[in-house]
Design a protein around this nucleic acid. Sequence first.
DNA 1: ACTCTTATCGCAAGTAGCCGCAATAGCGTC
DNA 2: GACGCTATTGCGGCTACTTGCGATAAGAGT
Lengths: 139, 139
Amino acid sequence: MEIDERVRASGRRMTVQRRLVLEALERAKHHITAEEIAARIRRQHPQIDPSTVYRNLEALEALGYVTHTHFEDRVTRWHLAASQRHGHLVCRQCGAELEVPMTLLEPLARRLRAEHGFIADLAHSAVVGVCRECASVSS
Amino acid sequence: MEIDERVRASGRRMTVQRRLVLEALERAKHHITAEEIAARIRRQHPQIDPSTVYRNLEALEALGYVTHTHFEDRVTRWHLAASQRHGHLVCRQCGAELEVPMTLLEPLARRLRAEHGFIADLAHSAVVGVCRECASVSS
DNA sequence: ACTCTTATCGCAAGTAGCCGCAATAGCGTC
DNA sequence: GACGCTATTGCGGCTACTTGCGATAAGAGT
């Protein structure tokens, strides 16, 4: 089924704005901020309000097309849910970002599930710490 | 008092505002937001600006007296660094918070260190997911 | 094609938190 | 105890969102 139909089937509507947000995500495919999406869309369609972009990201997330990840402290970044899931390490000193396969995080997820019945989404927040380079310089 | 001296020894100054922030943290001792600290202080000292509270939390964090943890999406909470370190699980559906001992998270930290040279601070961000109760209801 | 319900939009105002700046006030030194 | 250097403060304005509201327009039904 086409995305348009699935959106409608859920009682939502496929608007020009929603399609533009989806297209921006498809074009970026990877870690884009809401601000960036809004800026890109507004280059061609300046009448589209940033709040519309935020609301559409939320709606598309509720439908399962999109997810977001929290990076260093205040930045949220969005990507298509279909793209490869992976964890993130971010260095609190130099800001470097490292991607790690989910398999690395799975043992913890399994243990949280077994011991606390908690279904963890370990890709949702980046792991903050100090990268190899910064650690070797500062100590 | 000894904190005062240590603050001064680092080239910083012990101001009324800084002492009030520290006292608020000592009284709360556990997971308080910057807004709450500011509000409590401002009940007695309305001239103290919230931005001063934020800057003092930052300064006290740099000195190692205080740390912060990120909870669900946009909430940051502060506590004395001296208090017991532990991880947090937060349910994205009901908001329930669960504390887990750091030992549970350490195997992952060790592996990140061994395989990526990355010194992870797994207490810095809560682990987001779905708690046992919400999982059993929704599925 | 036309109607009608209501999801969604644009706008303006609100929120937590951050930052630059001129004024203020710790505190080491005399 | 006054002096001077400069860390820190209060303020106003900015960022990254969020929210309320009246207007607009999807799209199901006729």
